[in-house]
């Protein structure tokens, strides 16, 4: 392992449990590179996760790490951040964890604009349980619980985050690691709820069943369909179909929850003489 990043991993826990070609490891690398670039104090940085493939990441990360229950990572993280606001709190979650079972916590954490850095690893499938369709599986996806094809429409989790009140929303992918690191870094710098959707890939349960090719093919697909908003705007109409916009999608600073709560404490103590 490159010594530049080794300090951020529990190297003795590697290799990790993820399948060959799963891009979760790539996304985790971007997270630690962003932490490194931001110069965060490793002892004051906490990684919280829920349940699912991506939520196993904190076990490999050399910080205080909290692996919680399915869908609830944001609620646990809210407790961590509010109880000790000086901590830098990251949440690693998946498409099922964040937008299905944890959907309520997602919109409310965004609404509060509490200073959490949330990275959603979107692989469009429930991997840990063997390939069931998720809220981000595109319509038509084949999955073990959608053998005739998924008839549900998928969430755009970035639009959901923005609508719910997140002050920073971005999307990246496992192919463009420089961009991914950069948008996570910008999220860290935003004092508020920062939501980053990282397109990940599951070659074993999603790719194989949906004929997406091997691990490298799935990354190349990301390379081909992901464009920045500026590049998208320059595209002729007929080339826009199927494109996925990446980069910073929304950034509008808002009052941050724990900072506002500090004012409550001041008010309560002042009022009490």
């Amino acid at each position: 392992m490159n010594p530049e990043i080794a300090q951020y991993y529990r190297v003795n826990k590697l290799p990790h449990i993820w399948c060959p070609g799963c891009s979760n490891g790539i996304v985790v690398r971007s997270i630690v590179e962003a932490i490194d670039k931001a110069g965060l104090d490793q002892d004051k940085t906490v990684i919280v996760s829920g349940i699912g493939c991506s939520s196993r990441a904190p076990g490999y990360m050399n910080f205080d790490t909290l692996h919680t229950t399915h869908g609830r990572a944001l609620a646990f993280a809210t407790g961590v951040k509010l109880a000790k606001p000086e901590l830098n709190v990251f949440v690693i979650t998946g498409d099922g964890d964040c937008t299905a079972i944890g959907g309520n916590h997602f919109i409310h954490a965004a609404r509060r604009n509490i200073d959490l850095n949330v990275i959603l690893f979107n692989n469009n499938i429930y991997g840990m349980t063997g390939g069931q369709y998720s809220p981000t599986s595109p319509t038509g996806t084949k999955a073990t619980t959608a053998v005739y094809g998924n008839i549900e429409r998928s969430f755009d989790s970035c639009k959901l985050a923005q609508t719910a009140g997140a002050s920073y929303v971005a999307r990246g992918n496992a192919f463009n690691t420089r961009q991914l690191t950069d948008i996570i870094l910008k999220g860290i710098e935003n004092p508020g709820f920062s939501f980053i959707e990282a397109l990940s890939s599951c070659p074993v349960y999603y790719g194989r069943r949906n004929k997406k090719g091997g691990p490298a093919d799935m990354l190349k697909w990301q390379r081909d369909v992901c464009v920045t908003q500026a590049a998208y705007d320059r595209l002729p109409e007929e080339k826009r179909a199927g494109k996925i916009i990446t980069g910073v999608l929304h950034h509008e600073p808002q009052p941050e929850y724990t900072a506002e709560y500090a004012k409550i404490i001041e008010k309560a103590q002042g009022g009490n003489g």
């Binding site: 392992m1 490159n2 530049e4 993820w18 490891g25 790539i26 690398r29 192919f175 690191t181 990354l219």
Partner: peptide, 17 residues
């Protein structure tokens, strides 16, 4: 190195990422 999901590759030299 950047795309190895398993951190199995190290490249010396080149740009610091």
């Amino acid at each position: 190195e950047a795309h190895c999901p398993d951190y199995a590759i190290t490249v010396e030299g080149g740009p610091k990422r």
